[in-house]
């Protein structure tokens, strides 16, 4: 362990009404780690990811980004809410998210989508932001699509724009929420290729995925969630060749 971890989640709980979806999950990512989060649907893996940047508010548990804790408090109804929304916004800007459904802003061009965060959240000077955005679009292979609207792109292209949009924020940690699940099979590869490049560059990434190959080959650590709890975790080499729990064995045989 070298100093402060890039991201640390401590004993996170989340319920929807009476139904507890996350039952005390902890996770720690060092700088450069790629953590693949696996699990059957309903295992709580997407909810867990969405609790990290507070798209869902966890009922309890702490999230630390580079050692800084996201401060929470109880409101008068006894619910957990952010103590300081400005702090949360600042943290979110360092935690870029890539969604299953791309979620590009449909009234903005590709370039405008990528520029939005740097220009209006980070207040980067326009020329600098523009230069960086061009470089990022080139990086995801879409330099020639800068003036297109999302509706005119394929799913794979839209997702690569979404990745460029996330990268434009210079995030400390990137959160991927099933980034290839909404794609036609022949488009999955181009998105995974970009993600492999990011991993190779040393980006810190949490990836909720159904892509076993990506988890096995790219992740530095794989976590298997089952019914809202960490069921099995470790180096992918060990986990995939030698699953210990019945649940993970069953999951792997279903996926293959």
């Amino acid at each position: 362990m070298t100093g402060i971890s890039a991201l640390k989640v401590d004993n996170l709980h989340k319920s929807f009404g009476q139904h507890e979806v996350i039952k005390g999950v902890s996770m720690e990512a060092q700088k450069g780690d790629v953590i693949a989060i696996l699990g059957a649907s309903g295992s709580g893996k997407s909810t867990f990811l969405r609790c990290i940047n507070l798209l869902e508010t966890p009922n309890s548990g702490d999230v630390y980004l580079a050692g800084e804790k996201i401060r929470m408090k109880r409101n008068r109804h006894g619910e957990t809410v952010p103590a300081d929304i400005r702090q949360v916004e600042r943290m979110r800007a360092r935690l870029a998210m890539v969604f299953q459904g791309f979620n590009l802003w449909s009234h903005m061009t590709v370039m405008e989508n990528v520029l939005e965060g740097p220009l209006y959240v980070q207040k980067t000077p326009k020329s600098e932001a523009l230069e960086k955005a061009k470089a990022l679009l080139a990086k995801v292979g879409l330099a020639d699509r800068a003036d297109y609207y999302p509706a005119h792109l394929s799913g794979g292209q839209q997702q690569r724009v979404a990745i460029a949009r996330a990268l434009a924020m210079d995030p400390d940690v990137m959160l991927f929420d099933e980034p290839t699940s909404a794609l036609d099979p022949e488009l999955v590869g181009e998105v995974l290729a970009v993600m492999r490049d990011l991993a190779a560059e040393g980006r810190t990434m949490l990836v909720v995925t159904h892509e076993m190959g990506f988890a096995r080959d790219v992740s530095s650590k794989t976590v298997f969630l089952h019914k809202g709890e960490v069921c099995e975790e470790g180096a992918p080499g060990k986990l995939f060749t030698n699953p210990e729990t019945e649940q993970f064995k069953a999951f792997l045989s279903r996926m293959n």
């Binding site: 940047n53 798209l55 916004e89 600042r90 943290m91 979110r92 800007a93 360092r94 935690l95 870029a96 998210m97 969604f99 459904g101 791309f102 979620n103 590009l104 802003w105 449909s106 939005e116 965060g117 209006y120 959240v121 979404a162 949009r165 924020m169 959160l175």
Partner: peptide
């Protein structure tokens, strides 16, 4: 989702 994308960029 488009609103969530804004939220997760840290947009006020």
């Amino acid at each position: 989702g488009q609103i969530e994308a804004g939220i997760s960029c840290g947009m006020p």
